[in-house]
Design a protein around this nucleic acid. Structure first.
Length: 274
DNA sequence: AGCGGATGTACAG
DNA sequence: TGTACCTCCGCTT
């Protein structure tokens, strides 16, 4: 589930359901029982995301800091309570809204200062209005690390995960293994602008779609993609299948413990050949 | 029934 | 660079 768009959507969804009224809080699983006890009866007055970090502000209590990690999930309203729910919130005028948080890497109460420390170690987030992409470019343009690795480094740029990384590299014809400092500035600028658009669409649709209209299933006469990821993408988890643009087999290779996907023809080592 | 992955990160060595 | 952690789901037996 979780790249930055998921977390920003979550902030919105929590805001819409809980803001301004006291919540009931609990931890059916028990691991956040103490925190939930402090939250019970508090009023949500802020919901904010930076990259993959979610911050829920409760008046007089502080911030709940949530990071979903690889497998964390949030479900709302009708979702049944189970014993894996780390944090459950119930709110709304008639208790009609609920949130169940399962499997997070982090769910903790933190202070303003601790929240600031999280912001300080994150790079600019394409989904935040206050994002300044300049420091990200400064790091990328000085680095011998591959662009693929840099895009996943949350200190460089916050919110991009394995799907957006693969897809934005594809959309710009960039060789994933190209060192950051060999990436032309106009290409970087275009990638950043593209991430802003793609990730905003991701928040709205609550899934990742990156395929341009002319390559969409209807336009190409192929069935729509319906897997557990849910969106229409060019290369992510399409190993061995034909590239939607040129027909070359999509490749995969582990890079920094994650599977990288790319089209060797559309993203050649020498950009001039693309 | 049991295994291996998965849109992620932090820590050990 | 490897491994642990959190949960669920789909594939194999």
């Amino acid at each position: 589930m979780p790249e930055g768009h998921t977390i920003h959507r979550l902030a919105q969804d929590c805001q819409d359901r809980f803001a301004g009224l006291p919540v009931r809080a609990g931890s059916p699983q028990g691991k956040f029982a103490d925190g939930a006890a402090l939250l019970d009866g508090a009023v949500l007055d802020a919901a904010e995301a930076h990259g993959k970090h979610l911050f829920l502000g409760f008046a007089g209590v502080g911030w709940v800091h949530v990071h979903l990690g690889l497998i964390g999930k949030v479900a709302f309203d009708d979702d049944p309570v189970t014993d894996t729910v780390r944090l459950r919130l119930v709110g709304g005028r008639h208790g009609e809204h609920a949130m169940n948080l399962r499997g997070p890497a982090a769910c903790e109460l933190i202070t303003d200062g601790e929240k600031q420390a999280v912001h300080d170690r994150l790079g600019p987030d394409p989904l935040r209005a206050d994002a300044d992409p300049e420091p990200a470019w400064a790091r990328v343009s000085r680095s011998r690390i591959s662009v693929a690795a840099l895009l996943m480094d949350q200190k460089v740029l916050a919110g991009v995960g394995n799907v957006y990384r693969a897809e934005v590299l594809f959309r710009h014809g960039v060789d994933p293994f190209l060192p950051g400092r060999a990436l032309p500035r106009p290409v970087w600028d275009a990638m950043w602008a593209d991430l802003v658009v793609l990730m905003r669409a991701g928040v709205r649709a609550n899934r990742i779609d990156t395929v341009r209209p002319e390559h969409e299933p209807e336009a190409m006469g192929r069935p729509p993609r319906r897997d557990d990821h849910g969106g229409e993408v060019y290369v992510y988890r399409r190993t061995g299948q034909p590239c939607l643009v040129c027909g070359t087999e999509v490749r995969t290779r582990p890079l920094a413990n994650r599977n990288l996907f790319w089209c060797p023809a559309c993203q050649p080592p020498d950009p001039a050949a693309a």
